[in-house]
Computed example of a mutant assay.
Amino acid sequence: MRSLLFALLMLFALPAQSAERLDPTPRIAVISAFAPEWVKLKAAASDARSFDVNGIEFVTATLAGRKVVLFLSGISMVNATMATQIALDRFDITGIVFSGIAGGVDPALHIGDVVVAEQWAQYLEATFARDLGGGKYALPPWKKPEQPNYGMIFPGSVEVRRAGLKQPEEKFWFAADAGMLAAARRLHDVPLAHCTAANVCLDKKPRLLVGGNGVSGQAFVDNADFRRYVFASFKAQVLDMESAAVAMVAYTNGAPFIAFRSLSDLAGGESGGNEMAIFMALASDNSASVVQRFLSVWQPLR
């Protein structure tokens, strides 16, 4: 009995072991939120091999001449955070590239456009303030307004921990990698679809735009008034449900990050109903086309 007890004590005293690497090759993580966004990427990849971790399929492959690991984050911030950290723990990641769809909030942009934001923030990392009536709200005494509010919603920074910091830091914006952005700005003449498979065509031919801001949150936004608020308050071009979470994980792990988001809808800015169901496949393909060209241009540091 004593020897058994001693063995158990020694077992619990052992330090936690890091997750085992599934593949030793340095690879670029290429992430999509849900299946329609990665069909084109998987179809274009070669030398594919699949791994399953916690029910997530990770596919190592060669894409546009680069060694990559493709996977679906799942929709929303928590799923994106979890899946990205698993990839960083289980693979040798040299950079993180997100390819997906989003809602457009800049009135100058149109469905099908591909946006590459310079920085990302979480608009629902927020305090829901006390309603005093008459359009007035009160934050708790320890809170100060950091960003313009939308009614009771007061967005603010998030506490971030990373290696090398003695104390957590407060951050609102998480920047895309400067080298990746420079490579994205060298992309020209990437063919972008402007008609769906059902021959529904856009009024304007899609464009690639590099720069500006993006925001992410746990809500699917289809509201014209909130869209106006996001554009006015954050000078955002695009709104989605994952990119800022992945940007934060990349920052805490010291990994280069960039997101390519093609507009499938206008987040409530359409004159009729939401058009995501009509243009989702077109937008997904446009993002994937730009990502493949990007991979052929950007050179990882190792």
Rank of each mutant, 00 (worst) to 15 (best):
V30C: 00
A175L: 07
L22T: 07
D131M: 08
Y137S: 11
E270L: 01
S287D: 01
V78D: 03
G164A: 08
A244L: 05
H194A: 15
Q292P: 03
V210Y: 00
E170L: 15
W142Y: 14
S73E: 05
S32H: 00
A83C: 07
D52Y: 05
A7D: 03
F154A: 14
V215D: 02
E146P: 08
I278S: 13
L187G: 12
R66V: 05
V78N: 01
D113R: 08
A259T: 07
N79V: 09
M82D: 00
V114S: 02
D225Y: 02
D23W: 09
L181A: 07
I111F: 03
A283C: 09
M248D: 00
D265R: 02
G55Q: 10
V221H: 01
Q119A: 07
L41S: 01
A236H: 09
L282D: 01
Q218L: 14
Q299T: 13
D177E: 11
R302W: 03
D113S: 08
N79E: 11
L5G: 00
T60M: 03
M241I: 09
P155W: 09
K144A: 15
M152W: 12
L9Y: 00
E118G: 05
L187V: 10
G133W: 00
G100R: 04
A19T: 04
A175N: 12
G100L: 05
R21Y: 13
G74V: 13
S271K: 14
A61I: 03
Q237H: 14
A283E: 07
V30Y: 00
D265Q: 02
S3I: 10
L63W: 04
R90A: 04
V238S: 09
A283Y: 07
K235P: 06
L132F: 05
M180C: 10
W120L: 11
A129Y: 08
I86H: 01
V69R: 02
G55A: 08
Q218W: 12
C195R: 15
Q17D: 10
G65V: 03
M10Y: 03
A176Q: 06
D203P: 08
A244N: 02
Q147V: 11
V59M: 11
P155N: 08
L124T: 11
R49H: 13
A80Q: 01
K42H: 08
F34C: 12
S216E: 06
